[in-house]
Simulated scan of single mutants.
Amino acid sequence: MKKLSMMILVMGLVVLALAGCGGKKAEDTAAGNSGSASGKKIIVGIDDKFAPMGFRDDNNEIVGFDIDYARAAGEQMGREMVFQPIDWKSKESELKSGRIDLIWNGYTINEDRKTKVLFTKPYLRNSQVVAVLNKSDVTKLSDLEGKEVGLQSLSSAADALDGSELKSKVKVSEYADNVLALSDLKNGRTAAVVIDEIVIKYYMSKEHETFKLLDEVLSPEEYGIGVKQGNEELLNELQAALDELNKNGKAAEISVKWFGEDKVLK
């Protein structure tokens, strides 16, 4: 009888132990499910030296038009936007690898990029322009013949110059970002910089007597947001959020904050 009682006791302990393991597994699963809230995060690849679209302020905080616009879209989608500074030369590779979910920082739509990413509808117009120092005697593109011209490597500025007759007439210096390109221009190491009009006008608003623009425009263009090929679900979700920001006036509000006017394409 004692043996039977002992066997029943042992079996009961085994059952309790198994139940405990099952409970632990259930807790782990529940924890995993609650952790899946992180799946709501969207990693946004940016160039953090691309004012006024996305850049670091005096407190080293990432700010800009695209930053505010992305956050507003995230709120509309019920998703958290996480901004990841990347090497802009590797932006499409970063997207393809899954390290980022979006390319969103003054990203120009062009035919080559359309073969690599999915694009939202255009949301801003821009042009590639040529900036020189205000004191420069360069007044037109032909004045740059034989001179050194700076630009951001693997950028729309580089594409615009490549498609221009000017390319064969100048020496080109490539930089990791526009800040370095403009720094060399100010130091007299280059005669001009090919750059986004939206970007240089921001710097001109801060440094009123430093730069001027040549009248000739190299390339008109439009900005869009890049999504990984095959991820139409995210593309459609994002586009619906952007459309709603246009309807409710939030996009215009953000544009006025950064540009002083509503520049967002409807």
Rank of each mutant, 00 (worst) to 15 (best):
L4G: 10
M6A: 12
M6L: 14
M7K: 03
V10L: 10
V10E: 00
G12I: 02
V14N: 09
V15H: 04
A17M: 08
L18V: 15
C21T: 10
G22Y: 08
G22D: 09
G22I: 02
K25C: 14
T29K: 13
A31R: 14
N33W: 08
S34V: 13
S36P: 00
G39N: 15
G45M: 02
I46L: 02
K49F: 15
F55V: 10
R56S: 03
D57H: 10
D58S: 13
N59T: 09
D66R: 06
A70G: 05
G74P: 06
Q84I: 04
Q84L: 00
Q84P: 00
I86D: 11
I86Q: 12
D87A: 07
K89W: 04
S90L: 11
E92Y: 13
E92H: 10
D101S: 14
L102A: 07
W104H: 06
T108F: 07
I109G: 04
F119W: 10
Y123M: 09
L124T: 02
L124N: 08
V130M: 00
V130A: 01
A131Q: 08
L133R: 13
K135P: 05
L141D: 01
D143G: 03
G150V: 03
S153K: 12
L154T: 03
S155V: 03
D159F: 11
E165T: 05
D177K: 09
L182Y: 03
L182T: 07
G188E: 00
R189E: 14
T190M: 10
T190D: 06
V193L: 00
I200N: 06
Y203W: 14
S205D: 15
K206N: 13
L213F: 02
S219M: 14
S219H: 04
E222P: 00
E222R: 14
G224P: 03
G226R: 02
Q229D: 02
G230T: 04
E233H: 09
E233Q: 14
E233Y: 00
L234H: 11
L235Q: 02
N236K: 10
L238K: 02
K247F: 01
K247A: 15
N248R: 06
N248F: 09
A252G: 15
V256E: 14
V256T: 11
K257I: 02
W258G: 13
W258Q: 10
